[in-house]
Amino acid sequence: MTVRQAEPTTAEPADPEIFRRELTGYCYRMLGSGADAEDAVQEVMLKAWRAAGKFEGRSSLRSWLYRIATNTCIDAIRAGSRRAMPVQLGPARPPVEESLADVLPDGSWVSPIADDRVLPPEADAADHAEYRESIRLAFVAALQLLPARQRAVLILREVLRWRADEVAALLDVSAAAVNSALQRARSTLAATRTESARPLDAPSAELVDRYVDAFERYDIAEFTRLLHADAVQTMPPLAMWLRGSDDIGRWMLGVGAECRGSRILPTSANGCPTFAQYRIDPAGGHAPWALHVLAVRGGKVAGIHSFLDAANLFEAFGLPAHLD
Rank of each mutant, 00 (worst) to 15 (best):
A168S: 09
L160G: 00
E222D: 15
Q88N: 06
N71D: 15
L313G: 02
V178Y: 03
A231F: 07
R50K: 15
D209H: 12
R186M: 09
E12H: 10
R67N: 08
M45F: 11
R163M: 11
L137I: 14
A164N: 00
D116P: 02
A51H: 14
A142T: 03
D219I: 05
L189Q: 05
T9Y: 11
G107R: 05
Y131E: 10
P94R: 13
D281I: 08
E97C: 06
I18R: 11
L31M: 01
R198Q: 07
L207N: 04
C27P: 00
T192Y: 14
G90R: 10
E97G: 12
L154R: 11
F223M: 07
V118N: 02
F55A: 04
M30F: 03
T24A: 05
H228L: 13
A84P: 03
V118L: 06
V208C: 02
L226I: 03
R210V: 03
G299S: 07
S99P: 04
L207A: 08
C73L: 03
R243V: 13
R210Q: 14
A202G: 03
R198N: 09
T188K: 11
L170V: 08
S245W: 02
E98S: 14
R83L: 03
D324I: 06
L46V: 08
Q183S: 14
F275M: 13
L61E: 05
S268L: 08
D219R: 06
D172M: 12
F139N: 07
R193H: 06
V301D: 00
D213R: 13
E12T: 11
V296N: 09
T24V: 15
L319C: 06
M240K: 14
A310H: 02
A239S: 15
A35I: 10
V44I: 14
F307P: 00
R4C: 07
D281L: 10
A152Q: 08
R217I: 00
L146H: 00
M240W: 12
H228C: 03
R93Q: 13
L226S: 04
E158M: 11
A257W: 08
L323Y: 00
E122D: 09
R193V: 10
R263V: 08
V232I: 15
E195M: 07
M240T: 13
P105Q: 07
L171P: 01
E130S: 10
A52H: 12
R149F: 02
A302T: 02
A202R: 14
P266C: 02
E206Q: 15
L323D: 01
D39S: 15
G254S: 12
P16F: 05
H305M: 07
T24L: 11
I113H: 01
L291F: 12
A191V: 09
M252T: 06
P236N: 09
F139M: 13
D209Q: 14
M235I: 06
A125M: 11
A175L: 04
S245L: 09
W64Y: 13
A76L: 10
R82D: 02
V140R: 00
R117L: 13
G90A: 08
A197L: 04
A141D: 15
R21I: 10
W49S: 15
T9L: 13
